[in-house]
């Protein structure tokens, strides 16, 4: 069953169409790998799903909640999508003046209205899952890049989103920190967390992605199972991209 369905999504910036009618579907418990050159529109797609960018046209459906015309999405529609999806950013975007634990707790108390002590317990458990129990009172500037991204993953996972949106979660990391973050993502995937991951980690996507979407210049050029897209790409653009990315 599909959890998230995006149809005909369009988005332009200053008259240039960046997304030119995108269709993407995420099934329950599925990992969708989003690949494509820099500038293809991957970030814009993920940001539109969370309404961090206002989409120009398209239809979104999250389980049985549908927004027939996203261009005229109501406040409540936007709130619903933001509430049930969670974004992980390339640059972590942790709250600077909050500890790791407070970063994870904030949305629980302020958006989900969970009592503070209970929220702390839940957050603490999620930090333990990403292996950061020891760091829960540290501030972001005292953490390594890998640790910061793991906090960000805990902050997103704690909200039990129907779909998690990861925008190049390891691109800003030093190479030695990439592995620990990918391990956490793999863990979430194993637990059945549905997600879309935009990434250049082709080896990783080949292992964890159930479905791979190749975007090029604002359209979905090719999609299919990881094996299909990585090993037997049908389109020339895909082959070119993959040969440059060296899977």
């Amino acid at each position: 069953m599909s959890v998230l369905q995006i149809s005909g999504l369009r988005k332009q910036f200053d008259g240039t169409e960046i997304l030119r009618g995108i269709d993407v579907e995420v099934n329950e418990g599925e990992v969708v790998g989003l690949i494509g050159s820099s500038g293809a529109g991957k970030s814009t797609l993920l940001r539109c799903i969370d309404f961090l960018e206002q989409p120009d046209a398209g239809r979104f459906r999250l389980e049985d909640y549908e927004i027939a015309d996203v261009a005229s999405a109501a406040k409540a529609d936007i709130a619903h999508f933001r509430r049930h999806t969670a974004m992980v950013f390339q640059s972590f975007n942790l709250y600077k003046l909050k500890t790791a634990l407070e970063n994870v707790t904030l949305a629980l108390t302020d958006s989900r209205k969970i009592p503070a002590s209970q929220a702390r317990d839940i957050a603490s458990e999620f930090l333990a899952r990403v292996g950061l129990s020891e760091k829960q009172d540290s501030f972001p500037d005292k953490l390594s890049g890998g640790q910061r991204q793991r906090v960000a993953l805990a902050r997103a996972a704690v909200l039990k989103p129907k779909v998690m949106l990861l925008d190049e979660p390891t691109s800003a990391l030093d190479p030695e920190n990439v592995g620990e973050v990918l391990d956490v993502i793999r863990g979430l995937a194993d637990q059945g967390q549905s997600m879309i991951i935009a990434s250049h980690e082709m080896g990783f996507l080949r292992q964890v992605a159930d479905h791979v979407v190749f975007m090029d210049h604002g359209v979905v050029e090719e999609e299919g199972s990881a094996e299909q897209v990585f090993l037997h790409p049908g389109k020339e653009r895909t082959q070119q991209f993959l040969s440059r990315a060296r899977v």
């Binding site: 709130a79 975007n93 302020d110």
Partner: peptide, 20 residues
């Protein structure tokens, strides 16, 4: 980015302003 993270996790714009 902090504002976006807050909005994306479901906080209202006002909450994000006030807390972050």
């Amino acid at each position: 980015g902090q504002m976006e993270a807050a909005l994306s996790s479901g906080l209202s714009r006002w909450s994000a302003y006030r807390r972050i």
